[in-house]
Design a protein around this nucleic acid. Sequence first.
DNA 1: ACCTGAACACCGTTCAAGT
DNA 2: ACCTGAACACCGTTCAAGT
Lengths: 242, 242
Amino acid sequence: MAKASRPSKKRRAGRGASSANLSREIVVSTAIDILDREGLDSFGIRSIAKALGVFPTAIYWHVPSRHALIAEVITVILADLVPPRDLPWEEWIKALFVRYRERIRKHPNAAPLIGAQLVSNASVDAALIEGTLAKLCEAGFSGEALVAAYNAVIGGMVGFVTQEFALVSSDKDGSLRDPILRSIATIDASRHPSLAANAAQLVNRAYLLRWENGVSAALDGGFELYADALIAGLAATARRRN
Amino acid sequence: MAKASRPSKKRRAGRGASSANLSREIVVSTAIDILDREGLDSFGIRSIAKALGVFPTAIYWHVPSRHALIAEVITVILADLVPPRDLPWEEWIKALFVRYRERIRKHPNAAPLIGAQLVSNASVDAALIEGTLAKLCEAGFSGEALVAAYNAVIGGMVGFVTQEFALVSSDKDGSLRDPILRSIATIDASRHPSLAANAAQLVNRAYLLRWENGVSAALDGGFELYADALIAGLAATARRRN
DNA sequence: ACCTGAACACCGTTCAAGT
DNA sequence: ACCTGAACACCGTTCAAGT
């Protein structure tokens, strides 16, 4: 048993290994598959090649580097992100946030890739930039304030969700959970009264006190409040300028 | 010339290589040094060992794993984050955001580590959790809404800044800059009018259109607007509940 | 044009051995 | 207790070679 250690023809699920007929699209979609099924740790040129039944170096014919592959993956995952144009600006931005979160929820292991090393490749939809700017103009922003509002929206969209779905590397052995539960069990209620009073409803449902990420423990309430508060704040700022 | 390939005693800057006298603190502070000076790519067990003039495996006596080392680094960088307790809640949260950004600005290469794989080690200051909860109670939040508001604040604090200082890997050859400039130069003003009208003030100063990160191209306006809008929105939500 | 195959210069981590 | 030293099982990437 164990692993087949010989170089025998090993057939694989989905598209077979055998005689190779790759393309840029196949490489990218296989990469996303691996990302979804096996996580970020297993995401790499060599594992993608293995899944496709080819040598690692075959990948380089279709994709110039790991970095470029990541950029492609991000582009595919975030395709069709922009909400319909006819929505009022506040609803449009809310929809943008929700749609972004839906995309990440489908491919949560991509969150660190997008969030932390956002490759600003030009392919990232001019439609997203245009749409956001147009809606913020509609809201009354212009000049420097428009730039600021744009950055607040894009940064705000990516930021929260990236945290929510940040990987917490399985934790099968409870090495993440146990210290949290222990420290909660031993809270000094005189020094940390608010924490003590709310510990039960915070545990595994709040940043810094969770051992699962958004996949198994979504922060729906936090996301809603966050998005609505940010948009309401933008609206107030816009009103003040007019 | 080239590199000294013999196992001769090589002395190094700062604390010498020689006869080793490590500690957990020295390992962690050296790790931060390397992170700051040489970037995230050069951040690893082996490079830290090299800087200290010891074998890679010597590190493992003081730190159990790379993951745990990262957790230590984060803890040091975010030490003393919590603002003074006497501030009104809105100012307190603003101060928290500003202080967090200052910490990251000093160690920008740590942003991806914190943002994307926030290791929720219990050592992350109960003071931060307690302070945030206390101020949000002060604002009028309780129960489920308190949990949501807490997550909005923490997620909001980490999220924007992580994006702002996300690494854009040097770009000495202009491979990031050039495509952006090219796509801006060829905007179809009929399809993307808002983008065309504001291109000049957006270039390298806005998400998706920049090739430098917050270190050389800070998004001050965006951060201010973002933080103020979020806090104003929280205040409005709190008022509605009372 | 597209893939094989060997090789290079790296990783983090384990384990036995030295002192 | 603390570090050396060899070794293991990996990486991404380059380059020559096959077909």
